[in-house]
Nucleic acid binder design. Structure first.
Lengths: 194, 194
DNA sequence: GTCTATAGGCGGATAGAC
DNA sequence: GTCTATCCGCCTATAGAC
């Protein structure tokens, strides 16, 4: 640990940082973000709080880093969708892509949903931008009030239902189907023809 | 202390406690729950922290007390709904009642949705019971998976959209109408005949 | 029954030595 | 990159005055 024992990746520098994130995720999942102190993370890693602070300037930054993978996937889906020409196709692609991301990362969402503090941590970064772009794509440019409300309800409904502990045991495909249906009803999209 | 936290009755001797709750609500609204310290509340009241501590054993208890009025209204709606015979009528009554409560207390919801402590404080009390009863009434006893998902999405979608800061300026009646529509689509209820 | 004074302990965060 | 040492603010708790 001390010197020259970091065979990790090509760079070799991200060893501790990666372990830190993995440990943080585990502790966050077990106790929730707020209830997990930097001291606990440091202890679990066998280092001191200050060592943790070397890698992340703040606790929110750790939470943000833990959340990032899911957000990146969402960003990809958003870009794909925005490149489509027809509005219906854009909405459909974004909907199914969003549902995919939610289902795949539902453990993470459950975590964040339970700890609104994380929401704040994310809001500081680019998640706010993502949510604005999602709203634009879902609701369209007409600024129709009822569309905007429906889009908002769809986003939070899908995300928080997908992350709800009650449905944690449901298998991915089933959950995906149900959440798609939620989105279709709210966004006024027809069920895909069989 | 025990339970009586309803909006002051004709008592008159609950002065400090009532003032405390009003002050707490104001500060919570201004700065958020987490960012409001007992010290701030005490200072605003002109007393010491320990005086605050005398009335409420913990900060979460204050948050819970602030939230209680809305939850009590929801409970009334739930009881009314559960007394109705036809299932459709039960769903409709609960939906419109829920939307009413959400719209009326949306400032509170906005507050709670953004803050960690409150969520936890409420989970410890009876809000969990309320949400279970809501799910039962909305989804019915058949335990239909897709109904349960839709009901969950409706509840969180309505609540969090109603409390969303983006729509804070929207007037009550308009918002109510849109949220009702969200609920109707997800719960499969027809729009009231015109 | 209501409040003040005071103190413990923990949390996040920073500075600077190694 | 990691550590020691330290600051500050917060929640909680207790003892005791009025």
């Amino acid at each position: 640990m001390t010197a020259g024992t970091a065979p990790a990746t090509a760079g070799g520098q991200e060893d501790t940082r990666t372990r830190l994130l993995a440990t943080a995720l585990r502790l966050f999942t077990e106790h929730g973000v707020e209830a997990t102190s930097l001291q606990m993370i440091a202890d679990a890693l066998g280092v001191t709080k200050a060592a943790v602070y070397y890698h992340f300037k703040t606790k929110d930054e750790i939470a943000g880093a833990v959340a990032e993978p899911g957000l990146r996937e969402l960003e990809v889906v958003l870009e794909e969708a925005s490149r489509l020409r027809r509005r219906g196709a854009r909405v459909d692609h974004l909907l199914s892509g969003f549902v995919d991301v939610v289902v795949r990362h539902r453990a993470l969402i459950a975590l964040f949903a339970r700890d609104p503090g994380v929401t704040r941590a994310l809001a500081n970064s680019w998640s706010e931008v993502l949510s604005i772009r999602m709203m634009e794509l879902f609701a369209g440019p007409e600024e129709d009030e009822s569309r905007v409300i429906a889009a908002h309800a769809a986003i939070v409904g899908i995300a928080l239902t997908g992350g709800a502990p009650q449905f944690a045991e449901m298998d991915d495909d089933t959950l995906r189907g149900h959440l798609l249906e939620v989105g279709r009803r709210l966004l006024g999209r027809p069920r895909r023809s069989a």
